[in-house]
C-alpha cells in the first residue's frame, strides 16, 4: 500500500487560471504552482486576503475545478479522471460562503437529506443519518423549520449537517464564516472543532480571520496563487512583519510581544494566547525577583 491511509489530499505542482471574460479583465484568480499535502484528521486553515486564490484552491480539492497543470489526488482518486468525480465529492464535502445560496430544501431536514438522496441511500438509512447529523451540529429542534427563519450561523450548521449526512472524510469550508456575525462564527467553529477532534473528520477552513487560524493544527498562507508559508499557527504568526505586510492580522498578544522585542526585550515570538502570555510574564517576574 502507498500512503493513502494518511493522506487526504495531495496537490502536486497545481496550476489553474480562469479564462478572462474580456481582454482587459482583472481579478482572474489563479493558482500558480501549489504543492500541498493534507493529512487525514488534521485541521488545516488556508489563510489569505480576498482574491489571493484560496477559494479557487479549495474548489480544486473536490473536483469542482480541475487543474490545468499538475494533479490533485483526493483519498487516492485523481480529480482529472471523470469517473472519480462523484467518489471524491462524497468523501470531500464543501460548505460555501453565502448561507442562503446553498440550502436546497424548503425544510431543514429535507435539505440535510439532499446529499444522501443523490447518493441513492435507502430511505430508512437517510432518515437515520439526517437525525444523527442534525444532532451532531445541535440543530435537531429546528428540523422542521423553513431555512429562511434561521440565523446565518444556524444556516451554516444546517449546511454542515447536509455534508455530514453523506458521511464524508473531509469537510472544506470555503469562506463559510465570512458573512456571519461573531456569534455565528463561534457557533460554526465550535461545531468544526468538535467534528475534527471527536469524529476525526479532516477540516480545511478557508478564512482571512486570524482568530480562526489560531485554532488550526496547521496554517497555510496563500498569496497570489501560491502557498508562501506553512506551519503551526504559532510559527506563522511569529512573523508579525510578514503577515501584516500581506494585509492580514496577527493576534494582539503576539503583536504586543513583537513590539516589546523591538524595544530590546527578549520574549519568545510564538505567543498566541492570553494563557501563554501570562506564563511568560510570570516567568519574567520570577527572574526579576531572583535578580533583585
Amino acid at each position: 500500500m502507498n500512503n493513502n491511509n494518511i493522506t487526504m489530499i495531495q496537490a502536486k505542482d497545481v496550476y489553474f487560471y480562469y479564462k478572462a471574460l474580456t481582454e482587459d479583465s482583472e481579478n482572474v484568480e489563479a493558482i500558480n504552482g501549489v504543492n500541498l499535502q493534507v493529512k487525514k484528521g488534521e485541521f488545516l486553515v488556508l489563510l489569505g486576503r480576498n482574491g489571493s486564490g484560496k477559494s479557487t484552491l479549495c474548489r480544486l480539492f473536490n473536483a469542482l475545478l480541475k487543474p490545468k497543470m499538475g494533479t490533485v489526488v483526493v483519498n487516492g482518486f485523481d480529480t482529472l479522471n471523470e469517473d472519480n468525480t462523484w467518489l471524491i465529492r462524497k468523501d470531500v464535502g464543501m460548505v460555501f460562503q453565502n448561507p442562503d445560496n446553498q440550502i436546497v430544501g424548503n425544510v431543514v431536514e429535507e435539505d440535510v437529506a439532499f446529499g444522501p438522496e443523490n447518493l441513492g441511500v435507502p430511505p430508512a438509512e437517510i432518515r437515520k443519518r439526517v437525525d444523527q447529523s442534525l444532532k451532531t451540529v445541535g440543530m435537531s429542534e429546528y428540523a422542521e423549520l423553513a431555512p429562511h427563519r434561521l440565523s446565518g450561523g444556524q444556516k451554516q450548521k444546517v449546511a454542515i449537517a447536509g455534508i455530514l449526512a453523506m458521511e464524508p472524510e473531509c469537510i472544506i469550508l470555503d469562506e463559510a464564516t465570512s458573512m456571519l456575525d461573531p456569534w455565528g462564527r463561534k457557533e460554526v467553529l465550535d461545531v468544526l472543532l468538535e467534528l475534527n477532534k471527536k469524529e476525526g473528520i479532516t477540516v480545511i477552513h478557508v478564512t482571512h480571520h486570524m482568530e480562526e487560524a489560531c485554532l488550526a493544527d496547521r496554517v497555510a498562507v496563500v498569496d497570489d496563487g501560491r502557498i508562501i508559508k506553512e506551519g503551526s499557527p504559532a510559527e506563522i504568526f511569529s512573523d508579525v512583519e510578514g503577515i501584516k505586510g500581506m494585509g492580514l492580522d496577527v493576534p494582539q498578544v503576539t503583536e504586543v510581544f513583537y513590539k516589546l522585542n523591538q524595544k530590546g526585550y527578549r520574549f519568545p515570538t510564538d505567543i498566541l494566547t492570553v494563557e501563554d502570555a501570562l506564563k511568560v510574564i510570570k516567568e519574567q517576574l520570577a527572574v526579576k525577583r531572583i535578580g533583585n
Partner: peptide
C-alpha cells in the same frame, strides 16, 4: 484579546490597569 490579557496580568501584578484595549497601551 489585550483586554483579557490585562485582566489576567492584574491577577499576578497588583494595580495593573485592566481597561487596556489597544496593543500600544499594553506595550
Amino acid at each position: 484579546q489585550v483586554t483579557y490579557m490585562a485582566r489576567a496580568i492584574s491577577g499576578v501584578i497588583k494595580d495593573f490597569p485592566t481597561r487596556i484595549h489597544t496593543v500600544e497601551a499594553m506595550v
